[in-house]
Structures are given as C-alpha cells and as structure tokens.
C-alpha cells in the first residue's frame, strides 16, 4: 500500500485519460462544485492507481525502431524525440498490426525511484 513517503510519478497525468481527468476537475473547481484540495487528492489517487495498474495488469510488449532526433536527460528524466518510428506489438495470439508515425516524443522517468534499492 502506498504511504506518504513513496509518492508516485505524476507523469501519467499527461496521458489522454489523465488530461481528461484534469480537465474535468478543472471544470468542477471553476464551477465551485469541488474543492481544489479534493482535486489534488483525486489526482494523487490517479497517479497511484495508474502506476499500479500498469505494473500489475498490463502484459503487452512492444518494440520500436526509428531515428533519434533529440535526446535529453535532466533530473532523472529521459526525453527523446524520435522520427520515423515503427512500433510492433507482441501479444499472445498476435497483436495489432505495426504502427508507424513520423514523430513521437518519449518522456520516461526512472523506474527505480531515487533512494530506492
């Protein structure tokens, strides 16, 4: 179980589901229907459960190849901008077909929290 000492990354708030939640909370706050503190708690709940679900429930693997355009490593966060990427999905029973895009940004936090292990 989570404690206050091990906060979770807020990284996934930028995903579409997180953005949708943030927008929804914003709306409710500006309508005065919830308190900002409640929104913060919901978001930290979100951080925690996204992390847990991704770690425990998701089994899919994928590989990708492309040409690296920009890389950056700052505050333990890798940021890559990759061009002409192809993603291949490996699932039991065959996953969806490969997906190609001309540009993708990857934001990646350290899987080992500082101080951990």
């Amino acid at each position: 179980m989570a404690t206050a000492q091990t906060p979770y990354y807020e990284l996934y708030r930028r995903s579409s589901i997180g953005m949708a939640l943030t927008d929804a909370l914003d709306d409710l706050i500006s309508e005065g229907r919830i308190a900002p503190q409640l929104a913060m708690k919901i978001l930290s709940n979100f951080d925690r459960h996204v992390t847990e679900v991704l770690a425990e429930k998701v089994k899919a693997n994928l590989t990708f190849k492309g040409s690296l355009d920009t890389y950056r490593f700052c505050d333990e966060v890798w940021t890559f901008l990759i061009k002409n990427v192809t993603f291949k999905f490996q699932q039991q029973g065959g996953g969806p077909p490969a997906v190609t895009t001309d540009k993708i940004k990857i934001v990646s936090c350290n899987s080992k929290r500082p101080g951990e292990a």
Binding site: L54, A60, T63, F64
Partner: peptide, 12 residues
C-alpha cells in the same frame, strides 16, 4: 496503447 515493456533501438 498501454504496454508492460518496450524495447527501443534507434540511431541518432
């Protein structure tokens, strides 16, 4: 898409 693990190879 969500994934558990991803391997990436790319050239700069």
């Amino acid at each position: 898409y969500v994934f558990h693990k991803a391997n990436g190879e790319y050239e700069w």
